[in-house]
Amino acid sequence: MQRVFEVHFCMCMHNLLKREVIRLGNSAITVSSVTYALRGQKILRSIGIKAEVKKTVKHDGEKSCSYSLIVKKEKVDEAEQILLRNGVRVMGRSEGDGEK
């Protein structure tokens, strides 16, 4: 019983964390540093795209210790282009897969 509870608890935490990082309908643009992330947030905000800064959760070699800009899925293409045009180095993108 104790073991069932522990496994269930871990799965809940895992799903909770995944949901907290990238919700359904959102995408994440990964950048290399927190300064790039904050600069990117400022740039996107200035043109009306809301972006939240989060530490990137996935461990994926180059994306270790990186930061993500979380934006609405329908805005991500535009957001990425704007960041690149303003000299913010984009390392990649992730899509939100919603609640399980």
Partner: peptide
Amino acid sequence: GTGSNSISLVQPEEFPD
């Protein structure tokens, strides 16, 4: 340490890091 791209042993090129 710069808190960015920790997996690399090479100092980042991006400013200000």
